[in-house]
Each structure stands twice: as C-alpha cells, then as structure tokens.
Design a protein around this nucleic acid. Structure first.
Lengths: 312, 312
DNA sequence: CTAATAGTGTCTCTGAGACAGTATCTA
DNA sequence: TAGATACTGTCTCAGAGACACTATTAG
C-alpha cells in the first residue's frame, strides 16, 4: 500500500493522525527524475547529456535530471520540466510547441542504495523521443548540455570505484527482470563517428545502464508503436522514416519492402498528397510526404530482423 | 543526474561536502514499494490484497507493500521482502524455494502528489507471477491478506474523495504514455465469479490503476516471453499452459492450434517424457508433461487474437 | 456406451523477405 | 550520361487460424 506501518499506524481518527505525523523523523530517501532524451542528428542516434560541475563524478557526463519537487509536482511533470530546462525549450511559444511534439514515457526506477555516494537516491528514469532539436544554449541552465552520438559512449556498467569516494562500484540500479527483456546488451562502444569532440568514456552514476535500458526500450517500442515518427518533423517521407528505424536498430533495411510494409499498416501514416521539392542528395525521384496517422499500435508490427542470439 | 543542484553544489572537496550535507533539510518524499502479485486459482486470475487496518482508506483493500528501507535495500529486494512478508513465505526452506520460482519485475512508478493524503508518496510498483500459493495465514503479518479474483474488482479509477479526508480524488499516479500502451482499459467489473465473499468495490489509493496497469503488462508479457509458465508448477501440460493464457487474456483459444504453436517455439517448453497419471476430469487421454525451456523470448510470439478496437 | 479431451493432419490466407524492374532525379 | 533512389510487381516461404480426424480417457 502507498504508505503504512512505518509511522506506527496508531490509527483511529485520521485528522489527528495527520497532525501528529512528522515525516522528517525517518531515514530520508531522495527522489530524482532523470531523462534519456533521444534524437536523430545527421542520421545517427544522439542522447542529451550534461556535464557535471560538482562532485561526485565532477566533469563526467550524466543524464539530465533533478529532484522531484515534493508535494508540488507529478513525476511526469518533473520529467517535462527537466527536459525543458536542459534543452532550453521554455518560455517562447515555439518552444512549447516543440516540447509538445516530444514523446515522453516512464522508463524505470533505479534505487540501489549505493548508486549515489551522498545518500540513498531513488531515480525515476524517463525516455523521450524528440525531433532534431537545436543545440542547447550554453548557460541556459548552469550545466553544459549537449547532444552526444550514442555510438561514442561506453555503455558497459561502471567498474572500479566512484571517483573521489570510497564507494564500491554501482552494480545495477534496479529492475529484476527489466521490461523489454534482460539487459543482456551493454553494447560495447562502437568504432565509428566521434562527432562531438572526444568521446566521454563513461557516464556518471549508473547512467550507462539507464541509457542502455532506454535504448533497449526504444528499439522494442518502435516495433509495435508508431513512435518512430516522433523523431521526425511534422511532415516526413518514407525514406526518412526508414532512416529512423535504421539508426535506432542499427540495421540496414530493404527500401522496397519497408516502403510497402509501412503503407500496409492501417493508421501508421497518412498521405499529405504532396512531395518533396527536390530529390535525394544523391539523386532519385522526389518522395511523397506523409504525416503520423492515428494508430497507437502497429498492426501488423514492424518486427526487427531476427537476431537468433537475443532469444535466449 | 542522480542527485544535484538542490543541496547547492558548492562542490570542491567531496568529503567535506558529504559531511556538511544534511538530507533532512529539504521537503521529504516517502518511497514505498507495492506489489501486484498475480496467481491462478481454480482457473481464474487472482491478485493478492491486504485489508487496511488504519486510515486512510481504513477497511479498504490495497496492494501489499511498504516503505523502502532507506540506505539498506534495493528496490528489488524490498519487493521480494514485501511479497514474502505478505504471503507468509519466509523462514522455511520450502518457502524460499517457492519464492525463488516467482517471477518479479518492475511495473512502474506512481508519484502524484495527492495520491496519499498524508504526504507525497512515490510508489514503485512491481508485478509478480506466482504459481498457485496457499492462502496467507492470518496474523502472519498484522494485516489480513487474501487472494481475490480480479474479475470481482472494480478497476475504474476512483471517483469522489478519499475517505475521512478532504483530499481530492486520485487522478492517475504516473506514466505519461505507459509501457504496454495506453491504459485505455479501466475494465469494468465483470459479472461472474465472486468467490471470496463479497466483492471489494474499490481499492485504496490509486491501486486500481496500478492493478489495471499490471494486468495490461501481464497480458502483453506472455505474448513475447515464456512467463506464462511462472503461473504453473514445475511440470505442467500444454492444456494447463493454455488455461493460463485463457485466464490472463480472458479469451478462448483453439486447443489444437495452441498446442502445435507452443511446441513450434524453440526453447519454450521441454518434454519430460512422461504423462499425467489420469486424464482430464471430464474425460480425454492423459497429457504429456513439460518443463519451462531456456528461451527468454518467444519466437515466433504467441500473439493475442486481434482486437481491432485496441489499436487506436 | 457417450461425451469430452489430447494431439495431429491439412488447407487457406496473410505477411515477410528476396529479387527484379521502371520512372525520376542529382551531379 | 551515370548513378543513385522512389516506388511497384512478383515469387516463395513461414506462420496463423479454421476445420477435420483419430486415439484415449472419465463417468
């Protein structure tokens, strides 16, 4: 149940109980909300990270996030707020419009008591799919925020000790079984593309694991839901949509079969009746444009190419 | 990031920072862990509930759960502990063995500031699949715990106000999008089967919504994972496995096609080489018995009969 | 014996994927 | 013009579901 037996339930009259209740009399737990914000830039998947200005993990990159404002906001609201703060998307009407197009869903909660050296921090992670956004302006919110290609990150779980403290390494944050399946995929840092300067070797806290879980979720999610369109602008072409799937899955897809399959799923995309102004950069005819349809589940689904090794 | 900027990051030397840090100086949030424990009894899906002995919602049924022991346990450990306490499965070796066969995974986190009238409580919900367990012994852990058929519960979101307090009704706890898809299914209390006495009309807090989310997750999960076997004993027959799917999905399945399909999925079930001692209660040959195989994902999946209305 | 059930065979339809082919565009 | 690309046609194969059928058991 939501809250019981710890502040000994003397329970008779509730208002009396409420008055006598002192929430600060017990060992505290901090609740934060972290966001795995994914976007597509130059054809590859990027994640929003902030550089830590203070210990622990000073100088390391971390997921954007912050404390839940106790008594004042829902978890979802906190996630939206953090995302807006860190992307600099707030204030203007344009920013609000951009924010409203971002898909946001809860990813999972990580509560290992040692994941933060300062105290027991329970972190509720969210997953966001965003269309290509401008670079966060420096100074928009203290920390330095930037988009990083996920292929340049080390997603293996942290080893060794956390910097400047005697705390043993994070094991894994939370999730007995996980949602999309076992997290048997601490994808080793891929060789290509180091776009934004030198690659951050590792993320702060257990954020590498949270990011890995987010990527797993994203890969699974676009199979059954039309959310791949959340990575694109309002109007898009089938080849652009294919590029999303190829980037998220890191798989080459057959252009012809993909095209026919997308159009065969009812409610996935709606035709706009127009085409692009120009053909592709390397030639080819102009592509027809589409908008996201009203389906919330893809039927039939766009299943990933079978990877036999992921089954067991 | 996991914990930053609130306790103003004066950050230079970290140990100094740690010493000066007083976690109690900020508005507190309580963290609890609640468990949606599902099992199959007499061919229908049941959930473990406890009767609240104290306000708020005194006398109402709620999901088993309790406070996270700050600094001492992981969320997963807390969920296992709560489940063990409430089912009475602790102490003996048999109990430990039974516990180890239960599947447990994180479901989602609910953090609406008004979901508990006493304070802001963030609740991490877990989902458990258990084989048919004995009735919890009364007095095993203060509260009265019992298995309730889910068809007898009112899963619509609460309306009105929470009892004995002026707090407005819970909206919904958390989850922008949800995981398994939109929670467009506050299943109206079904007509049949009121096995365990008079039906509880509504659950405490936002537990009706948590349970509904858990049911959604369970229904989706058994499509792609072999976890339906977690509802059965170590050895089981294909018809017993079919009964699990029928109960969870609330759909009649074709016996012949189901049989062939299960055997066609590699690693789903392994034959034991033996059969049951007797035929079914209403006749028929003895069935061969199987054990859970080593697959962690079903390929191909056992898709639910298409429900056109759930797509949009 | 009768009725119900376990398990198999078979047919049809849908959808995935391989491959080919045409039209259209960039450079 | 050369080469790449958008999009369509067609073939094959796997799998889902409908239906039929046999064998085996309870009552």
């Amino acid at each position: 149940m939501a809250a019981e037996q710890r502040p000994a339930d003397t329970g008779t009259d509730e208002s009396a109980w409420l008055a006598a209740y002192d929430p600060r009399a017990y060992t505290p737990v901090a609740v934060t909300v972290d966001v795995v914000a994914l976007t597509l830039r130059h054809g590859s998947l990027h994640v929003l990270l902030v550089e830590r200005a203070a210990p622990p993990y000073q100088g390391a990159w971390a997921l954007p996030g912050g404390f839940l404002r106790a008594g004042k906001e829902d978890l979802d609201e906190a996630a939206v707020r953090e995302l807006a703060e860190e992307t600099g998307l707030h204030g203007t009407a344009d920013a609000e419009a951009a924010l409203s197009r971002i898909h946001l869903e809860q990813l999972g909660t990580y509560g290992n008591p040692d994941r933060d050296p300062r105290m027991h921090v329970v972190s509720v992670a969210y997953l966001a799919f965003a269309p290509d956004l401008p670079d966060p302006e420096a100074g928009s919110d203290a920390a330095t925020a930037a988009w990083h290609p996920v292929t340049a990150l080390d997603l293996r779980p942290r080893s060794g000790r956390s910097p400047a403290t005697g705390v043993p390494a994070d094991t894994h944050g939370g999730g007995v079984g996980g949602h999309t399946g076992p997290a048997t995929e601490p994808t080793v840092a891929a060789p290509h593309a180091a776009e934004t300067g030198p690659a951050p070797t590792a993320l702060a806290f257990d954020h590498a694991r949270i990011l890995a879980d987010g990527l797993d979720r994203a890969r699974a999610k676009i199979e059954y839901s039309p959310l791949a369109t959340a990575f694109l602008q309002h109007d898009f072409t089938i080849p652009e949509l294919r590029a999303v799937y190829e980037a998220v899955w890191d798989e080459r897809l057959h252009p012809g079969n993909f095209h026919r399959k997308v159009l065969s799923v009812p409610g996935f995309v709606d035709s706009t009746g127009t085409t692009t102004e120009r053909g592709g950069t390397r030639g080819g005819p102009r592509a027809r444009t589409y908008r996201a349809g009203d389906a919330r589940l893809l039927h039939p689904a766009l299943l990933r190419p079978t990877r036999e090794d992921e089954i067991r």
